[in-house]
Design a protein around this nucleic acid. Structure first.
Length: 822
DNA sequence: CAACATTGTCATCAT
DNA sequence: AAATGATGACAATGT
């Protein structure tokens, strides 16, 4: 994210904020690259095969052990380093570019040289990270090998040391296989060889997130035996995953949007989470140092990266489990990764690249080291190699991308930076801001739309979440039933769509100017979607805290609305709360920096409506900083552990009475906060407040009632749905019964005819064989009792039908033999 | 005013 | 042990 205000590391109640700019490092590296190209401030000359390359020694040293050693041993300016003969220009040049852009351009022709050079020069970020994964992909003729994940690859290497590279060496002839190159360079969606290291090649059902068939993993990959492969690998509902997510909603948010965008989810075992889990490049090796993910194709890399963060076995990041805000921030960053590579533009580029057979590898570590280390900064224990956030991202991009994007260093960072810029850091790279009209037209409808998006994002691709989405659908139906301006809302939704269209157009233009052209409108939508989806859950408290504090705060407080509405200027008593907001508010979200405005207006109004407090009662609301608000999704959906649910304040009277009581009790926070805070935040709030027994009881009472209220609503809705489903079932069964009855009638008629023909045949047989009917009846009775002949309409028993069959065949044979006899 | 629907709340159980 | 969700039951309110 471009801006994040974190204060977790600061002691509670002390309003210390940290400004973090994730675009800063991106800019730095970009500038350095620019300087290198213009030979500005370069202090080292690298000679390779007689050719000189100017660069900055510190930059080179930061990426290469070789240069670290050589450059540090030479103090003066004008250092000239002649590389060993083994290092070739074709191998070194891409590496140099990689150093300054974090993107590695390579083709099947020079990949080995690059790797060789990287190995010689000690490129930490590339050697094991990239080539250990990449080369086998290039040289493996088996598509199955492409389904392996990076982490697994690393693990496999450990399991069977040297197997990979030796395979490479012995299979160089496969290098020319276009398949390999294409795979590496392209999106794996339609390919028989999974380009992404972290998933199988089979697209999954976009709804279930599961695929029907799971190709057998390559022999050397043993997912089952891998220590990383626990239940959480296979089960999206695994506790571990949820723990890592902080809440399941996060996981879902993370998982869903791809499906929403028809971007297939690749899974390892048919479920989306395994894939994400299995994408952990670092966890397997206990840190990214050993093997940062070298992922292929933006889409899937994004899949992986974004979910990795939520994974428990995530190296050092795992240690931060429990630091919710850190996770939230991290998850948000990962959303950017997801944002990356998803888009038509990139798709086209990949196709073009596929044709050229040239790939571009972006190093996650470079990105990290280049700046997107927000989480890192918050986790002092993380070193460069273990920087969790970006180390999961190893998208492979086409060369054009790198060139076209000035912010080549760290796409994700740039994406974030874009938003960050938009928030004032650098208008030059801004994404078009939402029109002001958005706020006006947004209102309820947009809030609803955004919420739907959030819920969509939260729900698709995961069964449980779908359940919740259904709940949301139900809730919407309830809303419709209540006649809450559904038409108007649709109108607003349409308006929102149009606005987005306009935004897209404008955005394309601006992005072209600012070097963001690789971000398609679709990608941006994805970003919005993700941001909203994720942030809705991640930051449920802030909006409520901000907004719901209003009803609670009396006129006296409203007068000092600046302090009431602005969490950063709230009473010192609530400083810790400020931190709470800031660490999980839209301010953290790179997407929402540019998106929250319209949405917030919608949610504001929604909340206002819910609380029965309109704008008139909230004079400060309009003036409050938008970035300080984040969407609060009032949802009846359940399933999350209560961390994400915002309170649906339906009961105005209750809320008012609560507010009155709260005032009487002199609660230091509002009822809205009580209701809207997540469980953890709520407990945190209570912990930070010294409340009397009465106050505590009240707070818990209010919270319990509100939760129960929404639970009752859900329950009733479910019940109604159940009834409806049963009614549908009854109808269906009725229809089936009618059908069966008709069929029965037909069968009875057929049976009657059959009996008639049989009796005729019997009679003919008697007459032709000159037997008396009695004589014939004796043997025939064994098969065809007369009673049945007399009343053929009587439901025949299966036994009777069985008896009839040989008789019928007998009759048929006899009738067939008749002509011969005659 | 009765009948019905809706909604909030409580009690209880399960997780 | 506490918090939470689900659900049956009851009461208040609205239609």
């Amino acid at each position: 994210m471009s801006i994040s205000m974190s204060s977790l590391e600061s002691p509670p109640r002390s309003s210390v904020f940290t400004f973090e700019s994730s675009v800063h490092s991106c800019h730095v590296l970009r500038c350095l690259d620019d300087q290198r190209r213009r030979d500005l401030l370069c202090d080292i000359t690298v000679v390779v095969e007689g050719r000189s390359f100017r660069a900055h020694r510190s930059v080179l040293a930061s990426c290469s052990k070789y240069f670290t050693h050589r450059a540090s041993s030479h103090a003066g300016p004008g250092l000239v380093i002649t590389l060993p003969q083994e290092v070739t220009v074709s191998g070194f040049e891409p590496l140099l570019q990689f150093v300054y852009t974090s993107k590695l351009l390579f083709s099947k022709d020079n990949v080995m040289e690059i790797r060789h050079c990287a190995s010689i020069l000690g490129f930490r970020d590339l050697d094991s990270a990239c080539f250990d994964f990449l080369l086998p992909k290039f040289f493996s003729s088996s598509s199955a090998s492409f389904q392996r994940m990076t982490c697994c690859k690393t693990r496999c290497r450990r399991q069977s040391p040297g197997s990979e590279l030796s395979d490479i060496d012995t299979n160089k002839d496969v290098l020319d296989d276009d398949k390999g190159v294409r795979v590496v360079s392209d999106s794996p969606v339609e390919q028989d060889v999974g380009g992404a290291p972290c998933q199988s090649s089979q697209p999954t059902n976009s709804v279930t997130g599961c695929k029907s068939e799971t190709p057998a993993p390559p022999p050397e990959v043993n997912f089952q035996s891998d220590t990383q492969t626990d239940d959480s690998l296979r089960c999206p509902k695994s506790c571990k995953f949820q723990l890592a997510c902080g809440k399941d909603s996060v996981c879902l948010d993370v998982c869903i949007p791809e499906t929403t965008l028809d971007s297939p989810v690749f899974t390892e075992e048919g479920c989306p989470l395994p894939q994400s889990r299995s994408c952990l490049p670092c966890s397997s090796s206990g840190g990214c140092k050993e093997g940062p993910a070298v992922e292929i194709s933006g889409e899937n890399s994004s899949h992986c990266s974004q979910t990795q963060t939520n994974q428990p076995g995530h190296g050092e990041v795992e240690e931060r489990v429990g630091e919710e805000d850190g996770e939230k921030r991290e998850a948000a960053e990962e959303n950017v990764d997801k944002y990356e590579g998803v888009g038509e533009v990139e798709e086209r580029r990949r196709e073009a690249e596929k044709a050229s057979g040239v790939c571009c590898l972006r190093s996650p570590l470079m990105e990290v080291s280049s700046g997107r280390t927000v989480s890192c900064e918050q986790s002092p224990g993380l070193d460069e190699g273990t920087v969790g956030t970006a180390s999961h991202r190893c998208p492979l991009e086409e060369p054009g991308l790198g060139h076209q994007s000035p912010g080549g260093v760290g796409e994700g960072g740039c994406v974030l930076g874009g938003r960050g810029h938009r928030e004032g850091l650098d208008p030059a790279v801004s994404i078009p801001s939402q029109p002001k009209t958005e706020q006006e037209q947004g209102g309820r409808g947009e809030g609803e739309e955004e919420r739907r998006e959030m819920d969509r994002g939260r729900g698709e691709g995961e069964e449980e979440r779908r359940e919740m989405d259904r709940g949301e659908e139900e809730r919407r139906e309830m809303d419709r039933g209540r006649g809450q301006g559904e038409e108007e809302r649709r109108e607003m939704d349409r308006g929102e769509e149009e606005r987005r269209e306009m935004d897209r157009d404008r955005g394309e233009e601006e992005r072209r100017e600012s070097g963001w052209e690789e971000r398609s409108s679709m990608e941006r939508e994805v970003a919005e979607h993700l941001a909203h989806g994720l942030w809705s859950d991640l930051s449920s408290p802030p909006p409520s805290l901000l907004q719901d504090s209003l009803p609670e705060t009396g006129p006296e407080n409203i007068q000092g609305s600046s302090s009431t509405l602005n969490p950063r200027s709230m009473s010192p008593k609530l400083d810790w709360l400020n931190q709470l907001y800031l660490t999980s508010s839209t301010g953290d979200c790179p997407f929402l920096h540019g998106l929250d405005r319209g949405m917030d207006s919608g949610t504001d109004r929604e909340m206002d409506r819910g609380t029965g407090l309109g704008d008139a009662q909230l004079p400060g609301c309009e003036g409050s900083s938008q970035s300080e608000k984040s969407p609060c999704v009032s949802s009846l959906t359940s399933g999350d552990d209560g961390d994400s649910d915002c309170f649906d304040m339906e009961g105005d009277s209750e809320s008012c009475s609560y507010s009155q009581k709260a005032r009487e009790l002199q609660l230091p926070f509002s009822v809205g906060q009580i209701l809207a805070l997540s469980r953890n935040d709520f407990q945190l709030m209570l912990r930070h407040q010294t409340l009397t027994r009465e106050q505590l009881d009240f707070v818990h009472d209010v919270r319990r009632r509100s939760k129960n209220r929404s639970a009752a609503q859900r329950c009733r809705k479910r019940k109604l749905d159940c009834i409806h489903n049963l009614e549908c079932e009854i109808d269906k069964l009725r229809t089936e019964k009618d059908h069966l009855m008709t069929e029965r009638t037909n069968l009875i008629q057929m049976k009657l005819k059959t009996w008639q023909s049989v009796s005729e045949l019997c009679q003919r047989a008697c007459s032709e064989s000159a037997l008396s009917p009695k004589q014939l009846q004796v043997p025939a009775s064994a098969y065809c009792p007369l009673s049945a002949l007399i009343s053929p309409t009587h439901p025949a028993s299966p036994r009777l039908e069985r008896r009839l069959q040989p008789l019928a065949s007998l009759s048929a044979s006899s009738s067939a033999s008749e002509p011969r006899e005659s």
